[in-house]
Structure formats: structure tokens, C-alpha cells
């Protein structure tokens, strides 16, 4: 099985990035978010990749509706073998608590399904505001985000984590920067100079 990254079309920018790129979208306007994410998902579908979306502020049917409004070819039933929209909280916290290891396994399994099902690639995007509701384990979100980088290195799923700058406080947003090698700022992908390798981020503070 070829797990090596290859260039992928992001949709919202002309620049190609390797599959397995882990990006954070820090946004302050809904239109900005929908513009970036819609194009990102559409590019994946166009490339016949396996695409998954984890919705939190909107119900899956609403997400499907706005994607259709944007012209994205979303399957009529919403979910299909190559495309799914699920509730983020159920995806990240299937047992009512957040366990980074479990979610990382889910990512690996997802990648495996991509490979097994013959998709040329896979991409996911999740709304992270579920983590603000005090769900047990949600304080380990940054730990998870740091470890995702390791998983994606071997299981190259292209991922965009969505952080609403109106809901996460400034300090939390600053911490998000530490664990995402790429930032999407105003629709452009910025290489994050502040990014810390997972082991650096996770090493105990001196």
C-alpha cells in the first residue's frame, strides 16, 4: 500500500499541498469559513477522494444544503460511500468523552478505508467548537491535535480543523497555532513558524 504523500488540490488556493497536510482554519466570519471549507470538500469530491465532514454548529442536513447551494455535488441522501457528514461530537466523543487515542484510531481506520476502497486520497474537516462544552477529555484536545501530525505522517489524510475565533479565547487560539504546521488565514495557507513537533509540544514544561 502506497502511503506516501502526493500533491493534492485544496480548492480554495491554487497551490498544491501534499496529502496528509494538517491545517487549522481560524476564522471570524461564517462566510469565510463556508467559502474555504466548501471549496476544500468540493476539490476532494472532484478528485474522487473519500471525504468526511464533522459538523457541530449545524446539523448534517444543513451542511449538505449549504454545500449544494454552493454548487458542491453532494449526494442526495447526504451520506454515501465516498462522502459523509456526521455530528462532530459523536465522531470525536463516541462514548460521551474525548479520548485522543480513540480518535487517532478512527483516523487511521478512515485512512485504511480510503486505501481499501481504492480512493486516491481522503480528506476530513471538523468543527472543533464541541470542545468548548466541557465534555470530559476535551482538555486533551491540543494533545490530540499534536499527535494527529504523527498519524497523518503515516496515514496521509488531508485535514482542516476549524476554530472559531469568536468562541475560542485568544490564548486558546494561540495554542492551536503550536500544533498545526499550516494555518489558513483569510483563505491563504500560511506555513506556521510557531509550529512545534508533537514531541516538543508534548514534552513536559521545563
Amino acid at each position: 500500500m502506497d502511503r506516501s504523500p502526493r500533491p493534492a488540490v485544496m480548492g480554495f488556493t491554487d497551490e498544491l499541498f501534499p496529502t496528509g497536510t494538517h491545517m487549522c482554519l481560524i476564522y471570524d466570519h461564517e462566510d469565510e469559513r463556508r467559502g474555504v471549507i466548501g471549496r476544500f470538500l468540493d476539490a476532494g469530491l472532484q478528485a474522487r477522494e473519500k471525504v468526511a465532514y464533522f459538523a457541530d454548529t449545524m446539523a448534517p442536513v444543513e451542511v449538505a444544503a449549504w454545500l449544494r447551494d454552493m454548487g458542491v455535488d453532494v449526494p442526495r441522501q447526504g451520506n454515501a460511500p465516498g462522502f459523509s457528514i456526521t455530528v462532530a461530537e459523536k465522531t470525536y466523543c463516541p462514548d460521551g468523552r474525548f479520548a485522543p487515542e480513540a480518535m487517532l484510531s478512527t483516523l487511521r481506520a478512515y485512512h485504511q478505508s480510503v486505501v481499501d476502497q481504492g480512493y486516491p486520497g481522503g480528506r476530513v474537516s471538523g468543527e472543533m467548537s464541541w470542545a468548548l462544552r466541557g465534555i470530559p477529555g476535551s482538555d486533551r484536545l491540543m494533545e490530540y491535535e499534536a499527535l494527529v501530525n504523527d498519524v497523518l505522517a503515516t496515514h496521509p489524510i488531508t485535514a482542516v480543523c476549524q476554530y472559531d475565533a469568536r468562541r475560542f479565547d485568544g490564548a486558546a487560539i494561540f495554542d492551536v497555532l503550536k500544533v498545526h504546521p499550516m494555518m489558513i488565514v483569510h483563505g491563504r495557507i500560511v506555513r506556521n513558524p510557531y509550529y512545534l513537533q508533537p514531541h516538543e509540544f508534548l514534552q513536559p514544561a521545563r
Binding site: A165, G170, I173, M183, V185, H186, P193, Y194, Y195
Partner: peptide, 21 residues
């Protein structure tokens, strides 16, 4: 990274918090 990301915020509260961090 802070300088790149500052422009994302619209609320001064969030800007202050981000800058402080």
C-alpha cells in the same frame, strides 16, 4: 505566527488575549 494570525480576530477582547499569550 502571532503577527500572521492577528488579522483573523475582530473582537478586541480576543485580540488582547491572543497578544498577551
Amino acid at each position: 505566527a502571532a503577527q500572521s494570525t492577528l488579522s483573523v480576530f475582530s473582537a478586541r477582547q480576543r485580540m488582547g488575549e491572543f497578544m498577551h499569550r
